[in-house]
Design a protein around this nucleic acid. Structure first.
Length: 316
RNA sequence: GGCGCCAUAGCCAAGUGGUAAGGCAGCGGACUGCAAAUCCGCGAUUGCCCCAGUUCAAAUCUGGGUGGCGCCU
């Protein structure tokens, strides 16, 4: 049997994914499944541009506020949890509308990729591997990796500490190399039949202007207070959640390491760079409908074009 | 008005006679268990403010000009 249909709305930050997602959910009897690695944390609302109460009332939302900021989350957990959401929505006769900007999460959810049965990472092991990397250097670590997974080692750059450590960590924890896991999961059939829509701006400068404005709005809405609250509640600045754009910079400013204006400028800059990475990621979706705004977003038009596209793809 | 110092890529900047380091920004790319993270690649070419000169060879030396900074009267 063929995979069930889902709608995907992706694209760089500040392009209106949330809004279009809601419109599509309303039109196609859908429910939103967020695909955002930071919006899933509770108490991180302003800086992640999480859907507001009003927006959540306009359409059911899932995968928001599903973890505490001090929890370590991961793709595997996301896929497991989000797939359950999608299956549940489908079982009720509705359509999952996957909305978000985290490419890895979306691709992992849509593909048949399976992490079932694997435990979360062992912080102790990861810590010691990181320490070992620092002591021995990338070349040596790559050689250690090559001992059991030469294929993966050949693909990694010595400086890519994160992936080298992870490759070793996963092998130690599960006994399966990343390469083997990669090959095995690639052979699996896709979990869903996705109709993808990617939002963007015709001109890069317009996207950047939107981002800058959004950051100013976030600051006006109390971003710094939100971050101060998180830190006061004991959240470690080292946590994954605090690595989010807007949060790490605000935290640095609150700690007095940089000025407030400097932090705001950094948030804008980092957001722009993030947007570029997102554009690169989603540009690989050659079967997607690319909707690029020209000037002020016309959601009515976008909805019309999207509906046409989705209908042609068999959705109703 | 006089004296001194400086003038290298969008920004910071090394180089003081031998054929332009590095960092930041920007741009492009990657990405399978931390992903708003992490990593990789790309920049000065009738070249080093302009003009003239010395020299086999000048960003580097000399003279002049222009601009900036500092001090003095």
């Amino acid at each position: 049997m063929s995979a069930e249909k889902v709608i995907v709305v992706a694209g760089p930050t500040a392009t209106g994914k949330t809004k279009l997602g809601i419109l599509l959910a309303q039109r196609f009897s859908g429910e939103i499944v967020s695909a955002d690695s930071m919006q899933l944390y509770r108490r991180m609302d302003i800086g992640t541009a999480k859907a507001t109460e009003a927006e959540r009332a306009a359409a059911p939302h899932h995968m928001l506020d599903v973890a505490e900021p001090d929890e370590s989350y991961s793709v595997s957990r996301y896929v497991e949890q989000a797939a359950r959401c999608c299956d549940d929505i489908l079982a009720r006769g509705h359509t999952p509308v996957i909305v978000g900007g985290t490419g890895l999460y979306i691709d992992s959810l849509l593909s048949g990729r399976d992490f079932a049965g694997r435990e979360e990472g062992d912080e102790g092991l990861r810590g010691s591997l990181n320490a070992r990397y620092d002591a021995l250097g990338g070349e040596a670590m790559l050689r250690e990796l090559a001992a059991f997974d030469p294929e993966r080692a050949a693909k990694l750059h010595p400086s890519d500490r994160r992936r080298i450590v992870r490759a070793i960590e996963i092998y130690r924890l599960t006994g399966e190399t990343i390469s083997a896991h990669d090959a095995r999961t690639k052979a699996l059939p896709p979990r869903y039949d996705a109709a993808r829509i990617v939002l963007g701006c015709r001109d890069r400068s317009e996207l950047y202007a939107r981002i800058d404005k959004r950051v100013d709005d976030m600051v006006a809405a109390g971003l710094f207070d939100e971050v101060a609250g998180l830190l006061q509640s004991g959240l470690s600045p080292e946590s994954t959640a605090m690595q989010a754009i807007g949060y790490k910079e605000a935290a640095a400013a609150l700690a007095g390491a940089i000025g407030r204006d400097e932090a705001i400028a950094l948030i804008k800059q980092n957001s722009r760079r993030y947007a570029k990475r997102q554009i690169t990621w989603f540009s690989r979706w050659d079967d997607a409908l690319f909707l690029n705004w020209e000037g002020t977003p016309d959601f009515e038009k976008a909805l019309r074009i999207s509906t046409e596209f989705l209908t042609a793809r068999g959705l109703s």
